[in-house]
Write a protein that binds this DNA or RNA. Structure first.
Lengths: 119, 119
DNA sequence: ATAATTACTTAGCATAGCTAATTAGTTCCG
DNA sequence: CGGAACTAATTAGCTATGCTAAGTAATTAT
């Protein structure tokens, strides 16, 4: 019998949900579907995948029996931390190729792009 | 019997291939899979979808009997033109909300972002 | 207490990516 | 020339993700 394998790449959608539940405690399926801008059935299935991988667990809400709270397991938290570490490393490396002037240009463009993206 | 319906949204992946075959004549499945950075089986299936929608046709290459050339139908060309028009309209509208200074900031950031994206 | 609403789930469809294996042409050599 | 090796496309089958429609269970409102 194989132990829960946990890794084996974990797709972006699933990783994103993992970051969600690690960064905000007590999220329900509904809250997650809002956060990820996906329908509840879609989120439900993604959570199933996370549970099957041993990255998260479901538990009922104490105040509302309909709600289901999704929590990261230890493996899940580890995965998130590792991923964060890798991302920071990647980003630092990218950033190190950017000069001070270039960095200033990016900083200037950033709020404009943000505004356009949100519009 | 219903006429080929042609539209009904057409997913982004398929639209992208349509732009590919309209902008470059005589593309084969292999050339398209390189262009879209996808494996040949994936491209093959996408082309199937386009043919089923009546947006493209397959035809054998004269010089190499293994190759298959994908060509846009009239409907396909119409769809591409319409889509291009809509995109230009959308982009113009977005651009109209950007001041000259902001535009300059975006222009300055653009090559830096390009470099990072390609790295 | 009954009706309406809300939260999650199940079922089923479509798209899209992949690898492995097959088929049919082309090219390369001995 | 003719078989071997290679190349292009295809088929088969798996995974993942999105959706809508419909069902179940719990809660809220009347």
């Amino acid at each position: 019998m194989r132990l829960e394998r946990v890794d084996g790449d974990v797709p972006d959608t699933q990783l994103s949900v993992m970051f969600g539940i690690v960064n905000n405690e007590g999220l329900t399926i509904g809250a997650l579907s809002d956060l990820e801008r996906v329908t509840p059935p879609s989120m439900n299935r993604t959570v199933n995948a996370l549970v099957e991988r041993g990255l998260a667990t479901r538990s009922g809400s104490p105040d509302d029996g309909r709600k289901v709270i999704v929590t990261a397991t230890d493996s899940g938290m580890q995965l998130v931390e590792e991923t964060r570490r890798k991302r920071v490393a990647w980003f630092s490396k990218q950033l190190s190729t950017v000069s001070a002037d270039e960095r200033a240009a990016l900083d200037a463009a950033s709020p404009i792009l943000r505004r356009l993206a949100d519009s």
